[in-house]
Simulated scan of single mutants.
Amino acid sequence: MLTIRKATSDDTLDAWDIRRTAVLAACAEYYPEAFLSAWVDGSPSDKWAHVVERDFYVAVDEGCVVGTGMLTVENGQVDAIFVRSSHMGRGIGRKMLHLLEALARDRGIASMKLDATLNAAPFYRCCGWSGDSISIYRTSRGLELACVPMTKCVALP
């Protein structure tokens, strides 16, 4: 049974590993391998651990963390929706996104935004997000990658 809960500092390594394996598995056809490695290699910093504890949610299946998602309430930004490669295609990312949208709505956020990797943009469109233009996303490591800025109105009518 899949559950989603607020992340704790104990989830830092799982969140890092899920991000790394998901990026390498899902983005390989869209970005150069050397770029992907530079983006996700290494180990989590103290800053990463703090962000996980403050803003992340984790999807747990049979006691194993299998997905992540992040909502920055101050600006309605969604980030870090990653699913363990062994669990991709099971609706975990969609469930995480729906939870983050509900949390935003509960906190009075009317419009949300995200920067989708090229491979993820179709997924977000299927979930009701809008955006077609290509932009540049700058990672915390200073790398630049093509992305699709997307938005979604989540306010109740």
Rank of each mutant, 00 (worst) to 15 (best):
G131N: 11
R20Y: 09
Y124I: 07
C126V: 03
L156G: 11
V52M: 13
M1C: 08
V83T: 15
C126P: 00
I92D: 00
H50V: 03
A155I: 14
P122G: 04
D10F: 00
N119S: 12
D61C: 12
A28Y: 03
K95P: 03
D14M: 07
N119R: 02
A102M: 12
A59W: 03
G63D: 05
F35A: 10
V66I: 13
Y30R: 09
D106A: 06
R5T: 14
A59M: 08
T12S: 03
E62G: 11
G89R: 13
E101S: 02
V78H: 05
N75S: 14
T8F: 01
I134H: 14
F56K: 06
S140E: 15
G131F: 01
H50I: 01
D132N: 15
P32T: 10
L156K: 05
S130C: 12
L145V: 14
S135L: 08
M1R: 01
G128Q: 06
V78T: 04
P157G: 12
I134R: 14
I4C: 00
A34K: 13
A59E: 05
A155G: 06
V78R: 06
L24C: 07
G131A: 12
D106I: 01
V52Y: 03
P44R: 02
C27P: 00
S135W: 10
R94I: 02
E74W: 03
A28K: 01
V60W: 05
F56S: 05
N75F: 07
T151Y: 09
Q77T: 15
A155S: 15
F56R: 09
V154D: 08
Y30Q: 13
Y31C: 11
A38N: 10
Y31Q: 07
A22V: 06
S9E: 14
G93V: 11
V66A: 03
D79Q: 15
Y31G: 06
R5I: 14
A49C: 07
M88H: 15
E74C: 03
V60A: 08
S140K: 06
T151M: 11
Y137R: 06
R138T: 15
G108H: 01
T117S: 15
S130N: 09
T151C: 10
I136W: 11
D132L: 13
G42K: 07
G76P: 11
L97C: 04
G42Q: 08
C147L: 08
I136C: 11
R141D: 10
A102H: 11
D11F: 03
S111E: 07
G67L: 03
L143T: 11
S135T: 14
D106Y: 00
S86R: 12
G89P: 02
L99E: 00
I134N: 10
A38C: 10
H87F: 12
F82K: 04
G142A: 10
C27N: 11
G93Y: 07
I81Q: 12
V78F: 07
V52L: 09
V148I: 14
W48K: 08
V51K: 04
G142E: 10
M70I: 00
